[in-house]
Amino acid sequence: MMQVQKPRLILENGLRTDGRRPDEMRPIKIELGVLKNADGSAIFEMGNTKVLAAVYGPKEMHPRHLALPDRASLRVRYHMTPFSTDERKNPAPSRREIELSKVIREALESTVLTELFPRTVIDVFMEVLQADAGTRLVSLMAASMALADAGIPLRDLIAGVAVGKADGIIVLDLNEPEDMWGEADMPVAMLPSLGQVALLQLNGDMTPEEFRKGLELAQKGINIIYNLQKDALRKKYAEYKEE
């Protein structure tokens, strides 16, 4: 079932295998408040990658001795459902899920105003319902929207996108073949209003110039996503007038 030979990622006409231009992102869809019990929830989709995130808290942390005296702790779990991938994924946490839970927690910690809630914990749970490249960033964005949906104070929303190198071309928002066969995969997430990088990883091989070009391209994508995120939050209140 696995291809032995690397397929062509950029076609004759300069387009990618899914018809996109190198600087084009997949369609994005955001839904808020999708779960009743959670304090905040969101479904974030980019192309066929779809993630559900839920937030509970801030609430008192037990056992007390694990709580931080001056701010909230975050408990963050990134998890893939067994039916989210082509081959069934064993539901037990994999090493990858453990690493991504940590990376996502650290990104969220850069934006949640944890000092407002000493001795509490904020639970953030993400379930990947469909995996088609970019799951860690879609999960991070779903979590960020769920936190906003819960009304938990944030420095900024988090928007992110993976840039990479496919057949030597720097591309925006990798698809699955590019993720698997490309020469580099660099997920980037930012607090766009503050110009701060919250998540940055590289898997692959790039020159310093390619890295900078990738970062610049990522910022373009991030700004587009950021506006969609704001629209999603505002949409509910399109006309708000008090009497």
Binding site: A148, R155, L157, P192
Partner: peptide, 30 residues
Amino acid sequence: TPGDLIAEGEFQVPWSPYFYKIGNKYYSAI
């Protein structure tokens, strides 16, 4: 929405968890 730059300058506003300050810039937190 979170991250929106609401105001810049000197303001006499009571503290609130719903916005935060960096220098003299005020950002919405929610």
